[in-house]
Design a binder for these strands. Sequence first.
DNA 1: GAATGTACTGGACTGTGAGTCCAGTTGTTG
DNA 2: CAACAACTGGACTCACAGTCCAGTACATTC
Lengths: 204, 204
Amino acid sequence: MAGKADTRARILDIAEAAVLEKGFEATSIDEIVASAGISRGGFFYHFPDKNALARAMLERYIATEDKLYDDIFARARALDDDPLHAMLIGLKMLAEALENMPQGHPGCVIASTAYQDRLFDQGVRDLNRQAILGWRARFRAMFEEIESSYDLRETVDLDALGDMVSSVVEGGLVLQRALREHNAASQQIMLLRSYIKLLFAPRA
Amino acid sequence: MAGKADTRARILDIAEAAVLEKGFEATSIDEIVASAGISRGGFFYHFPDKNALARAMLERYIATEDKLYDDIFARARALDDDPLHAMLIGLKMLAEALENMPQGHPGCVIASTAYQDRLFDQGVRDLNRQAILGWRARFRAMFEEIESSYDLRETVDLDALGDMVSSVVEGGLVLQRALREHNAASQQIMLLRSYIKLLFAPRA
DNA sequence: GAATGTACTGGACTGTGAGTCCAGTTGTTG
DNA sequence: CAACAACTGGACTCACAGTCCAGTACATTC
């Protein structure tokens, strides 16, 4: 029936939807193959095991998230050339984007791999780590640029501040899932925005 | 060999240590019973299924966390009667407490149950939700008291601000596990502290 | 001191899901 | 037409959750 290697992408789509809804462990391979209309053998042809599936999903998610950040903060910068204002606009956009993600944000994937340690192999864990380090570097650079034209009202470690974006997104998503309040994550991002706004003062 | 119903507590201790290290799903009942020196039948005598174990662990964790918050913020308040200063002292203490938790903070339990939805029953999810709502109320009350003698530099929703404590703890723990940096969570708490410090201004 | 209950042991059994192996089939490409 | 990629289908092993139950050691109650 199918044609080429788009089966792999279909598996990933189906797996992602299922994992977002129920969690990784609760999603069985049987279920995925049934819903994809392929055989178990077909699944294992594309992915040697469930770890490989997790890795592929993580890779896709990280790429998506990176692109989201690229787009949002580029658009924000286009709207305002001041680095602080651009950051504040970007965070607002990020909050909106989080609110408009229908059935849960893939950020889950990060948190759930972090907490299901031994279930995943080194490759998955490394990917996770690299992604977060990448976001740290990205936001750190943005904060450094802001710092070059603003004064810090409080002494803070810029790496930790860069991490705070990931941290607030992940923490907000945990709350959102646990509370079943759809806008918890975006609210938390808005609080982070409020912090950033207060943290930087126009140079004296 | 054993005496009374302390077997139940021993199971919980062992399970908690294992879950903190590897995650809930990666911890098998066989492993727990082996390490507790009891039979499988013995385990199921105390817990009808793994959900009941999860529920019991969550209950214990929530009680511990509540007590930690009670202690810390009571001690902080004893050190400074001003509600803002007490909050700042408390957050510092919380950051230190997080740093001194040897093999990972049980906050994991919250995040991991949140992300493994269908694996847990309604009881577990409700418990999780109630705990977070309890912390929201606790911190909201503290922020309200601060607000009664300070001005807010930014308009913020006090529920969201109350949630921010849980959010930053959970998000920080996700980072900490993913990055394998032992002080990530405590750093994030310190940033939250810095936000609170900036957010409230002495009444004009 | 017989009866009852609690806290188990030990073992057999079912079911589900991951992962392996492999022989065979279909469509595409050189 | 040969070779390869992308599968199918089925048989199999293993680990783990969960069920059922008969028996046992110990303490408490009548």
